[in-house]
Computed example of a mutant assay.
Amino acid sequence: MSKQYVSYNIKGIKCDACDFKDMSIEVEKYPEWLNKPCPKCGANLLTQEDLDSVNRMIAAVDMTNKLLESLNVEIPDNSEETRVKVDMDGTGIVNMELAEDEE
């Protein structure tokens, strides 16, 4: 098993047009939600652009972990975890902000 320097916890689908959201949906199930209508308002729940952005983020995390492992980077014992909240709006543009401690 490779070291995890950077990790992701991507889940949930939310409508950009109304208040519908289902945070139980795992990222592995996202292709099943591609271009599906919102059960409340009918808007597209997951666009191809947003799915492509999610896949690029996952690839970037995987590549970063492989690079850091190949360089034998050590994680300091006193290192801190930083969480980032990611939002998308159907255009494929990714908005990130430091996450408040929710969990």
Results as ranks from 00 to 15, higher is better:
Met1Ile: 06
Met1Phe: 04
Ser2Val: 10
Lys3Gln: 00
Lys3Val: 01
Ser7Trp: 06
Asn9Phe: 03
Asn9Ser: 14
Ile10Ala: 09
Ile10Pro: 07
Lys11Gln: 14
Lys11Ala: 09
Gly12Phe: 07
Ile13Phe: 00
Cys15Tyr: 05
Cys15Thr: 11
Cys15Gly: 06
Ala17Leu: 09
Phe20Ala: 08
Lys21Phe: 11
Lys21Glu: 14
Lys21Gly: 05
Lys21Cys: 09
Asp22Thr: 02
Asp22Pro: 02
Met23His: 08
Met23Ile: 06
Ile25Thr: 05
Glu26Met: 12
Val27Asn: 04
Val27Gly: 01
Val27Glu: 10
Glu28Asp: 15
Glu28Phe: 09
Tyr30Trp: 02
Tyr30Glu: 02
Pro31Trp: 01
Trp33Gln: 09
Leu34Ile: 08
Asn35Lys: 07
Lys36Thr: 04
Lys36Leu: 01
Pro37Met: 13
Pro37Lys: 04
Pro37Glu: 09
Pro37Ile: 13
Cys38Gln: 08
Pro39Lys: 09
Lys40Phe: 12
Lys40Val: 10
Ala43Trp: 06
Ala43Lys: 14
Asn44Phe: 00
Leu45Asn: 05
Leu45Tyr: 00
Glu49Ile: 04
Asp50Gln: 05
Asp52His: 03
Asp52Ile: 00
Asp52Arg: 03
Met57Asp: 08
Met57Gln: 10
Ile58Phe: 05
Ile58Leu: 07
Ala59His: 02
Ala60Gly: 06
Asp62Arg: 15
Met63Asp: 11
Thr64Trp: 07
Asn65Thr: 08
Lys66Met: 14
Leu67Asn: 04
Leu68Gly: 06
Leu68Met: 11
Glu69Tyr: 00
Glu69Ala: 12
Asn72Cys: 00
Val73Arg: 13
Glu74Tyr: 03
Ile75Trp: 01
Ser79Phe: 07
Ser79Gln: 07
Glu80Tyr: 13
Glu81Gly: 02
Arg83Leu: 04
Val84Phe: 01
Lys85Cys: 09
Lys85His: 12
Val86Arg: 04
Asp87Lys: 13
Asp87Arg: 13
Asp89Pro: 01
Asp89His: 04
Gly90Pro: 09
Gly90Met: 08
Gly90Glu: 10
Gly92Asn: 01
Gly92Gln: 06
Gly92Met: 03
Gly92Cys: 12
Ile93Glu: 03
Ile93Thr: 11
Asn95Ile: 11
Asn95Val: 14
Leu98Pro: 08
Leu98Gly: 07
Leu98Met: 13
Ala99Tyr: 03
Glu100Thr: 13
Glu102Arg: 11
Glu102Ser: 14
Glu103Ser: 14
Glu103Tyr: 14
